[in-house]
Simulated scan of single mutants.
Amino acid sequence: MARVPYLLLIEDDEAVRTGLELALGRQGHRVVTAATGELGLERWREQRPDLIVLDVMLPGIDGFEVCRRIRRTDSLPIILLTARNDDIDVVVGLESGADDYVVKPVQPRVLDARIRAVLRRGEREVSDASVFGDLVVDRNAMIVTKGGEELSLTPTELRLLVELSRRPGQALSRQQLLRLVWEHDYLGDSRLVDACVQRLRAKVELVPSAPTLIRTVRGVGYRLDPP
């Protein structure tokens, strides 16, 4: 029997929180909720959920700070809920370590699809390993090591690196990566890709500001180059 995903929903609006809890439960998820950032952090430490759905505008500690604190020690997936498709909210959220975002008012089916997509990113697959200097991407075990040490990557960072490693030296557009990694079939938000690449470079590059592995292809996207 497939394992039921365990979600933590951090949302201060009681009507939204209750509605999403019921809707996600009907979609087959187990859901625990919190109404504040402080309580959300407590529930995260106690419950160890598979994924967090996190509202940006929270009383006290806001969603950005909650995301930053979690990211210091945990790579579990985080999906942000934003009140509007605001550039600043989206960029700050992604830079804080979020994997994806959904704009309110939230359609439960859309949120469920995003949740299932991000959870699939960490699933194992049958394949082999690719070596890029001291960086090894093992697609069978879904493990990445650098200098023999396993890297702590979020499922989204891992899937992005896996997809780039399948095609070394080949430029992939941002839209291709959105389809392959985020499973966004529409003309999606390329900021998801750029923010994830930035975080990934900080973990795999010797000098993240002067990358030698994950290269930017101007006007196209990114490619993974052997050293």
Rank of each mutant, 00 (worst) to 15 (best):
T82I: 15
E125I: 03
L135S: 13
K104R: 14
V102Y: 09
A117Q: 03
V102E: 05
I115V: 09
I115G: 01
V144K: 11
D100T: 02
P77V: 00
P105W: 01
V106M: 12
L111V: 09
V110D: 05
N140E: 13
Q107A: 10
P105I: 04
R124V: 14
L111K: 00
V137S: 05
G93M: 07
Q107K: 14
L119Y: 08
K146S: 13
A83T: 11
A129H: 06
F132S: 06
G148K: 06
P108V: 07
I143H: 04
V90F: 00
P77Q: 07
R121Y: 07
I88L: 15
G122L: 06
G147K: 05
L81G: 01
I78V: 15
G148W: 04
R139F: 04
V106N: 05
A98W: 02
I78N: 00
G133Y: 03
L119F: 10
Y101A: 09
P108T: 11
A83F: 13
V92N: 13
A117T: 02
K146C: 13
N85V: 03
D86L: 07
A141F: 01
Y101T: 12
E150Q: 14
V92I: 15
I115N: 01
V126G: 11
D86F: 10
D138H: 07
V131C: 06
T145G: 09
E123C: 05
D134W: 08
D134L: 10
E123V: 05
V91N: 12
P77Y: 00
M142T: 07
R139Y: 13
I143W: 11
E123G: 00
A129K: 06
R139C: 02
V106L: 01
V126N: 04
I143L: 11
R124E: 14
F132C: 09
G133E: 10
N85H: 15
R124L: 13
E149C: 03
R116V: 00
A117I: 01
G93D: 03
L80R: 04
V137H: 08
T145M: 06
R139T: 04
V92E: 13
R116S: 08
P105C: 08
I143V: 15
D86T: 08
L80M: 15
V126H: 07
V137P: 01
D87M: 13
I79D: 07
I115Y: 00
E149N: 11
T82H: 00
R84K: 15
K146P: 01
A129M: 08
G147H: 07
G93R: 09
S127I: 02
I143E: 06
A98G: 11
S127A: 15
D87P: 11
L81E: 00
I78P: 00
G93F: 09
I115W: 03
S75H: 01
I78G: 05
V144D: 08
S75D: 14
R124S: 14
L135Q: 03
L94K: 02
A129E: 12
D128L: 02
I143S: 08
